[in-house]
Design a protein around this nucleic acid. Structure first.
Lengths: 210, 210
DNA sequence: GTCTATACACCGATAGAC
DNA sequence: GTCTATCGGTGTATAGAC
């Protein structure tokens, strides 16, 4: 990969982070990359294509970073810990902000939608694997849909990032609130086999009733 | 309120919905409102101020619409029902999309951040009241922070809206997944007093350990 | 691959006639 | 309150010299 391409890709992610999708332009990206503005179009054709390339590179890099950590998660408690670490870290690096701005722009642009779908799929498959593993021998095994839950977790990260931008205190409280609710799942998980079987039948009934 | 002001306010919400924050401009809004472009600045001064006025009006109107429905929610099951209805309805009307685009822009603009904070506060206080009421006589009363949970629910709506734009199937699965998890809370809620007391002590221990 | 120069549309915002 | 006209600047994108 040429130096200029790389510089443009990095400047684009940085631009999404700090200027947002509304403030991103070929001019601003080129200036940030200290590269001639015309090179944006020489290398990437159009702005959406550059954004696609940049966000794709960002998500590929970031997902790799967490692959090992994800593989070592063995309990819900650990998942929460890694989740909070990931949230804090990705929030300060701005990677979630990039994803949020991408998704905001994706609502009106087909190419950005494709890029957003790719990003969510990459994160989703990582998260899903962890959830699936953790749920395998839990009384919740039949109740939880790992793929759906993974999508929800991704959506929560995006939503919380945007929420944090307008109300950081509230976003902290929101994180704490789910953590405490997840403890509930943990408690259920730790129930004895009798209680666990009773719970399972109740859950079956409850799902059927819906 | 003059006719022109009203037209501009409505056109702004519509523009956020269909063009996104990145595609919104004084010219596009004025065209949509079939109003002279200079009137945007005569009536509102700057674009962010117009966006603030428009999103404020939108959230005020929409919150009122749900106030009655929220007041009638008496169980978690009903909360889920209203929640799904609200999500479906607000998603099709595009009101959540407006909020999502507002928050995306709010990350880079102080005035929009203020508008976003206002919107999240209005929704938050409504949701919090419901959560607080439902949790009052539940074994989870001490475990759940109503305000935090309300913030989380708001964030989920925003995140899910953006997620839906790139992967509608995944967003459906995500919604289904939490619904099934909430059933878990419902089951715990329906436990007898003995089991409930046992659970409460377990939860206390679990929270303390954190 | 990189540069300058440029086309042309659009941007927010203002001045001033009506 | 509304209009036209206009400012300076920025947007994407391209042509053509180097």
């Amino acid at each position: 990969m040429t130096d200029t391409r790389q510089k443009l890709i990095e400047a684009t992610a940085e631009g999404l982070r700090t200027d947002g999708i509304a403030g991103l332009s070929a001019r601003s990206v080129a200036a940030r990359a200290e590269v001639n503005q015309a090179l944006v179009f020489y290398h990437f054709g159009t702005m959406p294509e550059l954004i696609q390339a940049a966000t794709r590179a960002a998500v590929d890099e970031n997902v790799i970073y967490y692959r090992e950590q994800f593989a070592q998660i063995g309990s819900l408690r650990e998942l929460l810990e890694v989740g909070r670490e990931l949230h804090d870290r990705e929030h300060t690096t701005g990677n979630i902000a990039v994803m949020a701005q991408l998704l905001a722009g994706a609502q009106q642009d087909l190419l950005l939608a494709e890029a957003g779908r790719y990003a969510m799929a990459r994160w989703g498959e990582q998260i899903e694997a962890v959830v699936r593993r953790l749920m395998a021998d839990s009384p919740l095994a039949g109740v939880v849909d790992p793929a759906g839950l993974a999508s929800m977790i991704s959506a929560v990260f995006i939503g919380l990032e945007l929420y944090d931008g307008v109300d950081p205190v509230g976003s902290r409280a929101a994180l704490d609130a789910v953590e405490r609710l997840v403890v509930l799942v943990d408690v259920v998980d730790d129930l004895g086999p009798v209680a666990s079987r009773a719970l399972r039948s109740r859950l079956k009934k409850a799902s059927a009733a819906r």
